[in-house]
Amino acid sequence: MKVIIRNYVPEDAEAVADIGRAALPYQVTTPATVHAQVTTAPAGQRYRLLVAETDDGRIVGYANAGLYADSDTPGLAFANPVVPAAARGRGAGSALLAAAESYLAGIGGRTVYTWALDEPAAHAFAARHGYRRGRSGSFLRLDIAPGAPLPDVPALPPGVLLRPASDWAADPHPLYETDLDSILDEPGDVDSGAPDYAAWRAHSWDRPDFDHDLTTVAVVDGEVAALVNVQTDGRERYWSGGTGTRRAFRGRGLAKAAKAHSLHRARAAGYTEAFTNNDDGNAAMLAVNRWLGYRPCGNEWRYFRDLSDRP
């Protein structure tokens, strides 16, 4: 089987989404989101989506690549090849990674980061291509079908309200500011920096799978204090894409209450599976997710390499 690597075109969106769902079943992936990531990526990210196509026209893998445009450290980049199990072992992953690395080196990338599932073949692939292991993360799953156990929403302190993000449709700036304050303390091995408002809108608020009704905001005495970002596939799958509380409001159980409230509303809307992921060093959020009933369903590792040692 001959594989060629080429740039994504809009007609590839459905095939890329199918591969994403097969290889990464824990995540929410839709054709509309695939396309939006290409067309709305911040200019400084220099985002590129590559696909691996066989000589008979089948797409058997893809890789996204770009720069961490908001990082204070110049040259930080990412490249994530994805090939479903049925198509592995034929060179598509290596070809995608080589093309992504070549592209990144040409636009100033110095250190490239990637994710690998916690599987022997994935670890061997990363090591074979000169990558070193960094931090680990966990995918978590929660059954929210009717009848499945789900904790009640904790009692709210006086002055606290839980509201849908759609209430801020006219001006979501307060939600952006809450996200910024929250991500500063997130553990990780990449200094990805803080996005500007336009980049935040493209990455979160305006993305096709962002659920403005299930995304839940905790308000304390009229001030936005905590936020649970939610993406859905419009069918059965719910993804918690980021939860944070502003520093001045931490320690009050706001994130726990907001997540529980959102999950109950997701069940009422017909969603049956909830997924999220956490850095394994994020003890506070892991504790919240365990209380909610999430259980591990997969693991991944961050790998990285210096592009200057490419052959």
Rank of each mutant, 00 (worst) to 15 (best):
G91R: 08
L184G: 02
G106W: 06
I183Q: 10
L104G: 12
Q45T: 09
P81Q: 10
P149D: 04
G188P: 05
E53H: 08
D56G: 10
Y113I: 13
G93P: 06
H173F: 00
A170C: 01
N80H: 10
I59S: 08
W168G: 01
P187T: 09
L150C: 00
I59Q: 08
G66W: 11
Y68H: 15
T114M: 13
G147F: 08
L96H: 14
Y47C: 09
A105E: 15
F78Y: 15
T114P: 06
A77M: 05
P174E: 03
L76V: 04
A105F: 01
W115S: 05
D181H: 05
L49D: 09
A85W: 13
P120F: 10
A98E: 13
V82R: 07
T73L: 14
D171C: 08
L104V: 12
G109A: 09
G57A: 15
G91F: 08
P149N: 06
D171F: 07
L162D: 04
L142N: 01
T178M: 06
P158L: 09
A124H: 02
A85H: 11
I107S: 07
G188H: 02
P154V: 06
L161E: 15
D167L: 14
D72K: 12
R135N: 07
P120I: 02
A127H: 04
S102Q: 14
A148L: 05
V83F: 13
R141M: 06
I144Y: 11
A155Y: 00
L50H: 13
L161R: 12
P157A: 12
P164D: 03
R46Q: 15
R128C: 00
G75I: 03
R88F: 09
A52F: 03
G137Y: 05
T111I: 15
Y68E: 13
F125A: 08
W115L: 12
R46L: 13
V160W: 02
A99P: 06
A105M: 13
H173V: 09
G130V: 03
L140Q: 14
Y176R: 05
A85I: 11
R90S: 08
A127F: 02
D143P: 14
T178C: 15
G147W: 01
G75H: 01
A124G: 08
L150T: 06
L76W: 03
R128K: 12
L76Y: 09
R88T: 15
A79M: 08
P149F: 01
V153L: 03
E119R: 15
S71F: 04
T111G: 03
I59H: 10
G159C: 07
R110Y: 02
P172R: 10
V112A: 13
A99I: 05
L142D: 00
P149T: 06
R90C: 06
E53Y: 13
E101W: 07
G106L: 06
S166K: 10
A69Q: 14
S136K: 04
E186P: 01
D171V: 00
L96N: 12
P157E: 04
Y176M: 00
P164H: 06
A52H: 11
A145N: 04
